[in-house]
Write a protein that binds this DNA or RNA. Structure first.
Lengths: 347, 347
DNA sequence: AGGTTCTTGAGGTACGTGCCTCATGACATT
DNA sequence: AATGTCATGAGGCACGTACCTCAAGAACCT
């Protein structure tokens, strides 16, 4: 018969009592309001850490009669994966509302650093508690992230990280490991060795650069007989990617493997199917979307590596909640797993 | 400039006003208290659906000054996967407490249907809002689940489902698809065909039976040259599974593939390593645990199919929360993905 | 000493829900 | 017609936090 009341969470009242101050003073310290001597504030901080107090976010949001506002900035364009991220946000809208969170999605032109920076600069801290961005690595964006952070807006990066900025968390897969996994599968699929080509979106995107790095190093370390013979950038566009693949197939009729580490998979699949599905070519692509599913079903693609947009959005939301507690510099998040899909375990 | 107040969530006050009744009546309907005429209750229900009202669970828990109690019944024994489920519950303990949920784990003797049924029967609805069980398919358990449901305790099944019972949700992977995936990988690994053996835990466990079904049907459909030559039950025990594998290896020196669809992987890996790791044998097992990780690293195991215990516990908790809202018959859950792990994408 | 500013306490209301009591009116039973 | 039962309303207190006002004391300045 354990006494439930003994293990209940500490409240502001407990903190006030432990620190020997009034509720109002605890409130001033907790919410960064002025009018507290440093010595008093310290007493309160001590009591907080001694009791392990942490603000009850639900009660807090209720008292403020206000939802937590999270804005997702997601690239637009012909990139199906980004569409599925946006769809994942939509799916979470209702459940999030039940937890006093208001989600908003803003689609931005892909790879337009200036537009993203301007949008971040225009954010009002009263209308946005947390911004989630899919960013390329550009100085304007880093500056805008730092500025937003100073205004009190928590910024998180999604899919592709922005190290060196004031972003609080990164939500995404380990892209180096993804590249290594692609190499490891392709290597096993080609026991006799052969030539493989790589297609990227843009190597200015950190996720793409990291995948390439992992792919190259794993091939070099484990599968010496597999040779990389081409590397092209399709800018995540359907048409451009398709043209590149068609060109590769024409130029290298004996190509044994193809790794598309970026988007533009609709173009990839079209080019492959035009070339004849029953080819001996082993193909690995990224992100489980309509075109890659179709490619898996038709046999044009052998394996798809996926980063589970729903899981990423879920983690982003839960991290945003944790960040709103305002304690640590960044929130704990569960790592996003690299999903491996064949035709047979399509979900 | 959208008016925030226009899109704020409906409250019980709104419902009362819309239905033309008092707050007390709405409360009676919402919480299933007696003393409301059917006609009045209907007016309230109408108002609820018209306004799209849904109870604010946080305010509700706060008002009750009581946490939501969820009890996980997890099999004990030498099954590492069940240990990792229990560990996943532990990891969620703190965060869940911050959301006013109190998690408890009870380890039960594996495959002891009577003990589980008795424990379910002993549950007090005031001390347990939701029970999560890993059940085998036995009539006593189904009866106990139904009884608990009648007492107002939501029951969910984890890992292995219990269709036909009053369980509100099932949290786990699609085990038929898992079996198919194993067949598909093994088939691709054996382009020349060959003989493969299957080891299960107990075919009275629905998850094991479903995996076997998927494995057999996919092999038959896609890989005719691969022949299943053995099927044994190791009862998820290390020693028994090891003995079975040793026997198989002795009896069939030219065995090309092995699929262990149950637990007991420590015994599997020991037997394989005793036989020499550099074998041509392709091995697929389930659940990423210490022994299967070791097996992947040493090369004894080629692929591990995993059902991500942390994800399952997370979904179970969030479903339990949703069930506490008490509206629908079952809560929406995100499907659990089948993870595929090679040596190179171990997390 | 007088005035000014800073610090702190006391206490209230609000958020949305649960749960309780008490009163009142409607209806059915004898 | 008197009595009892049922349906409903009215209202209050609680949960943990935010945010406000008002008052009083402390500390500083000249």
């Amino acid at each position: 018969m354990t006494d439930e009341s003994l293990r209940r969470r500490a409240t502001v009242h407990d903190v006030a009592r432990a620190a020997g101050v009034s509720l109002a003073t605890v409130d001033r310290v907790l919410n960064g309001r002025p009018g507290v001597r440093a010595a008093t504030a310290e007493k309160v901080e001590d009591a907080i850490s001694k009791l392990g107090f942490s603000r009850d976010l639900n009660a807090s949001l209720m008292a403020r009669a206000r939802d937590l506002h999270v804005i997702f900035f997601i690239p637009d364009g012909s990139n199906e994966f980004m569409d599925s991220l946006a769809a994942a946000v939509d799916r979470r809208f209702g459940p999030a509302l039940a937890d006093r969170m208001h989600l908003e999605t803003r689609r931005m032109r892909a790879l337009d650093a200036l537009a993203l920076a301007q949008n971040l600069d225009a954010l009002d801290p009263r209308a946005c508690d947390c911004a989630v961005i899919v960013a390329s690595e550009e100085p304007e964006i880093i500056a805008a992230v730092d500025a937003a952070h100073r205004r009190g807006i928590a910024v998180m990066t999604l899919v592709s990280d922005l190290p060196g900025s004031a972003r609080r968390n990164f939500i995404g897969i380990d892209n180096v490991a993804a590249g290594r996994t692609a190499a490891s599968l392709l290597g096993r699929f080609l026991p006799g060795g052969g030539q493989v080509a790589v297609v990227a979106g843009s190597l200015h995107l950190r996720d793409h650069a990291e995948r390439l790095e992992g792919f190259k190093s794993a091939l070099a370390a484990e599968f010496e007989s597999v040779e990389i013979i081409g590397l092209a950038e399709g800018h995540d566009e359907r048409a451009e990617t398709g043209d590149i693949v068609t060109g590769l197939l024409d130029q290298h009729p004996d190509l044994a493997g193809l790794y598309n580490l970026g988007a533009g998979n609709a173009g990839l699949v079209e080019a492959l199917e035009r070339n004849g599905c029953s080819s001996h070519l082993r193909v690995i692509a990224h992100e489980l979307t309509a075109p890659t599913r179709a490619g898996l079903r038709s046999g044009a693609i052998d394996v798809v590596l996926d980063q589970n947009p729903d899981g990423e959005i879920r983690e982003a939301i839960s991290a945003a909640r944790a960040l709103a507690l305002g304690t640590g510099r960044s929130a704990e998040t569960n790592p996003i797993e690299i999903g491996i899909f064949l035709r047979d375990n399509l979900r």
